[in-house]
Design a protein around this nucleic acid. Structure first.
Length: 429
RNA sequence: GGAAGGAUGGCAGAGUGGUCUAUUGCGGCUGUCUUGAAAACAGCUGGGUUAACUGCCCCGGGGGUUCGAAUCCCUCUCCUUCCGCCA
């Protein structure tokens, strides 16, 4: 959410931001509505002021035992109450309408973000590692997993429908190992580990920016104000809703884990093979709440990217970093990097991590503030990046480390989390 | 699932229809005193809205009664305790 005063004062900047983000919000309509709210609000407040004064006069008249005057004033009060009662529903309605529109206004992308329409306009800024070159015919992740008996999609679909999976054997252990590995590494860097609810209330999703626009991507728990989160970000943002933090406690650095759920609406027929795009997955997420300062946001944004890169490097997976263009970055974001891992079977890089900074866009929605050294209450800045999202990371991991003999090498850094195991091999017999 | 009791400012905790501009204490800030600190004393000390106010709003959320609600009524949410069930 942007500051309404900022939109009033700089409508052109906001309109341009919306254009760059392919967002069709009608800023002029919003401002027109805003004027209606202000006029009506002024009117209601004036009437209420009169009513408050009158109320005191009624008290006074009663004290003086002036019954005639008291009755006269009460009659006047009745009229004012009547007037307010008439105006209030409209004021509530237009105020709510303005708020709902405000939720749809995108954040202003940073000047450093590439201008573009969709993911094809994202700009690669860094490459690490060499795409693998084998002297044998490599398999794709699904074949590998089937050969090694690491997955059962058919029975998963029987249980939970399409885009479901069962991880078996060493894949199940690998999944937990990866979560542990990521959580551990981040904790060492001073991030506080959190295991957060995978279900959250409506306000958490509004606060984080998933609602109202992304509502169709979210599972709702029937007959309750609860929804399954698509990222632990949602719960962490919700944790601090309406709080005023102390400046000396910032930045708050968290590494959050919970199972994540996404409907993947509108992706029919896309990425249907294996475990790339599924409804339920596990994600370890980096999350930072810092002071309202652009330089500081940028600093932590780079830091979050660095952390993710280190994790992927330790997993020995070639990757690249792209600077995500305005059209692909989503409404709330000021700037965004994607980390894309090399997927040998597809001969291309695919997104495994997403690193964003949002200035106070989420903070305004969730009303998360802090008292700065100057005594003023300000909205915080928030940032987030994936640490590990799995099973998706299994795709580049398994494919990259497959061996000629059909086994899969477990990277050294991960091995301790697999009880020292160094290879995943076909089960004998 | 059943029963009871709660939700007030950073914290504790008063307030059961107008005198609430929310008592008081603790904490915090500032000042006086002091070489400095402590103590003592004095003052200040929530958020929002508005171009601004001696304006308006906020006593868990929403609705109602009333000229007037922290206070009365309805409803929802959450918390605590006890019982039941349970990983």
């Amino acid at each position: 959410m942007l500051d309404l005063a900022f939109i009033r004062n700089h409508p052109d900047i906001v309109k341009e931001a919306a254009r760059l983000k392919n967002n069709s919000i009608d800023i002029d309509a919003l401002l027109e509505l805003d004027q209606r709210v202000l006029a009506l609000q002024h009117h209601v407040e004036e009437t209420r002021a009169k009513q408050n004064q009158l109320s005191k006069s009624i008290q006074q008249a009663a004290k003086e035992k002036n019954v005639a005057l008291r009755n006269e004033l009460i009659a006047q009060g009745k009229q004012l109450a009547e007037q307010i009662k008439e105006m209030e529903p409209e004021l509530t309605a237009v105020t709510e309408e303005r708020y709902n529109m405000l939720l749809l206004v995108p954040n202003i992308p940073d000047a450093s973000a590439p201008i573009g329409k969709d993911e094809n306009d994202n700009v690669p800024i860094k490459y690490w590692g060499e795409p693998t070159n084998w002297d044998f015919k490599p398999l794709d992740h699904y074949e590998l997993m089937q050969k090694l008996d690491l997955v059962d999609i058919e029975r998963a679909v029987k249980v939970a429908g399409s885009r479901s999976y069962v991880l078996k054997g060493d894949a199940a252990r690998l999944e937990l190992a990866l979560i542990n590995f990521a959580l551990d590494r981040m904790a060492r860097k001073g991030f506080t580990p959190l295991i957060v609810p995978a279900m959250a209330r409506d306000f958490c999703f509004i606060g984080n920016g998933q609602f109202p626009k992304g509502r169709d991507q979210v599972y709702e728990v029937m007959d309750q104000d609860l929804f399954l989160v698509g990222t632990s970000e949602v719960s962490i943002t919700g944790m601090y809703k309406d709080e005023i933090l102390k400046a000396e406690d910032l930045p708050l650095k968290f590494v959050g884990y919970c199972p994540c759920f996404r409907q993947e609406a509108g992706t029919y027929g896309k990425d249907t093979r294996g475990v790339f795009r599924i409804h339920q997955f596990n994600k370890v997420e980096q999350y930072i709440i810092c002071k309202a300062d652009h330089e500081e946001s940028v600093h932590w944004h780079e830091h979050l990217l660095q952390n993710a890169e280190e994790l992927v490097q330790e997993l020995e997976i070639p990757y690249r970093v792209v600077n995500v263009c305005t059209g692909d970055m989503g409404d709330g974001k000021v700037g965004m990097y994607d980390l894309e891992c090399w997927v040998p079977s597809e001969n291309r890089y695919r997104e495994t991590h997403s690193c964003s900074y949002l200035h106070d866009w989420q903070a305004r929605r969730a009303n998360i503030r802090y008292r700065d050294e100057d005594g003023k209450v300000k909205f915080v800045h928030t940032l987030n990046n994936t640490a590990i999202a799995t099973p998706r990371i299994l795709i580049p991991l398994l494919e990259t480390h497959q061996q000629a003999d059909g086994s899969i090498r477990i990277p050294e850094a991960l091995s301790p989390y697999m009880g020292g195991q160094q290879f995943i091999r076909p089960r004998l017999g």
